[in-house]
Design a protein around this nucleic acid. Sequence first.
DNA 1: TCTTTGGACTGATCCATGTCAGTCGCGGCT
DNA 2: AGCCGCGACTGACATGGATCAGTCCAAAGA
Lengths: 242, 242
Amino acid sequence: MPNKPLALKLGAFVALSEAELSILEGLHKRRRAFVAGRDLVHQGQIDHAAYILESGWACSYKLLHDGQRQIVDFQIPGDFLGLRSVVLHISDHSIEPVTDIEVTEVHVSDLLEVFSHTPRLATAVLWAASRDEAMVVEHLVGIGRRDAAERMAHFLLELGARLSLVGLGSRAGYACPLTQYLLADALGLSAVHVNRVLRQLREQGLVTFRDGFVTFDDYDRLVEFADFEMTYLDQVGPLLAK
Amino acid sequence: MPNKPLALKLGAFVALSEAELSILEGLHKRRRAFVAGRDLVHQGQIDHAAYILESGWACSYKLLHDGQRQIVDFQIPGDFLGLRSVVLHISDHSIEPVTDIEVTEVHVSDLLEVFSHTPRLATAVLWAASRDEAMVVEHLVGIGRRDAAERMAHFLLELGARLSLVGLGSRAGYACPLTQYLLADALGLSAVHVNRVLRQLREQGLVTFRDGFVTFDDYDRLVEFADFEMTYLDQVGPLLAK
DNA sequence: TCTTTGGACTGATCCATGTCAGTCGCGGCT
DNA sequence: AGCCGCGACTGACATGGATCAGTCCAAAGA
């Protein structure tokens, strides 16, 4: 257990006391494991749990009638899974583990309990949720208005920033289990084009994505190329330090 | 005051008691008016208020370095403005009134107060926020995977459903103050193409958008054309009734 | 050992949508 | 009355990215 990713993440927003940390701990209930590729939550499912991702990667996506799919976001350790659709009656999306994952279940009732008794923790959780939403928004902007290369660059930078917050990435790069097909479904591109764009970025000496590793060949130029403004992540992450 | 749009909207989720309604009422503070076109909140702004939209339309958008913009969502009466960016330190987007609007300010502290003392109301507000997020997600899916015509059709249907929830629309249609430029910025298209797509939908006898009115010429066929699955709105709206 | 499978990768071609360069009509301003 | 500016609308042309139809390689299974 690499030092509790969720606590690490929330700690970047507010310093949490021992007491608050143990309450946070208390939220975690049953620990479960899921294998890669088998959905945890189905679009349209009525009554499902919410989870905290402890290890591995997952993605949330929606399927269209014609079989296309759009990945809305990837989840990395420390992220919530299915939090929003617990408030709505019906889950509007599916969640699939990208790798084998470990999660802990959280009960909404416990969460609401925390909201009324531990305001600082409540704010921290709301912060995390708002940040997730801000990422979806940024994703929307990217798909709507950035061309394929900028979009890819922006995406890889965002992932890097998120991972570094839980100690899984740095300015040098990070381990990344995503296939080009997954990237395509996330970025609204075809897998073929993802391949071409990755080649282009590599040849320009910006990033290299190969054998499960993303390597930032020239971080600063990449940031400029992608117009990556990370204020929306609301984090003064390790990456800001030169 | 056409019978408090926010109460109308939340009432679609849970029946609120007199007491709860008056607490909801108490959230509304200073009433303010803004003229069309002048931003309420700027991208990057640090310390700003949240509002409830009482009348008129607004939109939230992000600007890119090269001057392009992407509209994330439109807000109609009963919607919150800038709620998310109140939790994050910095607003990640701008909000602009599309028409002249009236809003009431809400203080976050009051809102948190309500969260701890009036659980049902808290759930209702969380529901509204989750629904907004679900709409952004659906929007993302549309931009990523639907072609221009489906996207437009879906968008017009969604607006119709939202408006009907606050009594401003029906299966017949609704008044809509959006220009084709605004539609373009929202749908990730060029204004020229918006025009072409609107013509196409009109010629196919599906919807007509003309002179500030959206008219559903054949609601059912349009729903099918757009693959409009409104479960994500989590509402058993007036539109379901034939 | 041979086969199968999934992921990375490529060239040729096609098409949805963007861009350019306008026209037209209307409401507001002088 | 005349002008201005904005929004709707259009045709011609350009292009980013999709689609098609593959190859190649490594790991897993038989």
